[in-house]
């Protein structure tokens, strides 16, 4: 039973580290403008970049935030692995408490940021950016001189690492729940009386 707890946490920790490696190269959400593509936004908590007419645009502050997220997730993953090796130590619960939250927070923050991004885009520029699927983005007439209308074909999609991230977060929560469940059944081993007497 104790091995099972360790196994889930080990899987969660390794998956977290794997998620970081994947997310650097494959975004969680991709927004494509034009056909063929003229601009592309790749968004994940560990990598946010904009490609406009073939040139990459990197915003230094967002790059730093991505780096923070990589380090936070990596620390969470490593600590989950350490926990999985020693799940019954007195300090294990604290390790688990730190480790299991990181992928969960990453997913929650990502979803909130994505929604905020679309709301802000709508509020400031009038662009109704779709979260999923293809659409036609109408440039507001106030931004274009003369009797000209400009529309752009856009495509937005969640990529498979996003679903993998949800699975990893689920795995981490499962490890946490399992830890609680097991420790309710088998309380933490107390210090043997013999050693105290001696």
């Amino acid at each position: 039973m104790q091995n099972k707890i360790g196994l889930i946490a080990l899987l969660a920790g390794v998956s977290t580290l794997l998620l970081i490696a994947i997310s650097v190269f494959v975004p969680w959400w991709r927004f494509t403008v034009g056909h063929p593509t003229i601009a592309q936004v790749n968004f994940s908590p560990v990598n946010f970049n904009i490609a406009l007419f073939g040139s990459q645009i990197t915003i230094p502050l967002i790059f730093a935030m991505n780096l923070s997220c990589i380090l936070t997730l990596a620390s969470g993953g490593i600590i989950m692995v350490i926990y999985s090796l020693k799940p019954n130590k007195p300090y294990s619960k604290r390790l688990l408490g730190f480790g299991y939250k990181q992928p969960l927070f990453a997913v929650i923050i990502f979803v909130v940021e994505l929604f905020a991004l679309t709301v802000v885009a709508k509020a400031f520029s009038g662009f109704a950016v779709p979260l999923i699927g293809s659409g036609v983005l109408q440039i507001p007439s106030s931004m274009i001189p003369g009797k000209v209308s400009v529309s752009v074909n856009v495509l937005a999609a969640f990529e498979w690492p996003f679903y993998f991230a949800i699975a990893v977060a689920g795995l981490c929560v499962t490890a946490r729940v399992y830890h609680r469940k097991i420790h309710q059944v088998t309380p933490e081993p107390s210090v043997p009386n013999t050693s105290i007497i001696n």
Partner: peptide, 10 residues
């Protein structure tokens, strides 16, 4: 052009 559709009614 590249999925950018420009329409001029005038």
């Amino acid at each position: 052009v590249n999925g950018i559709v420009v329409q001029q009614t005038q």
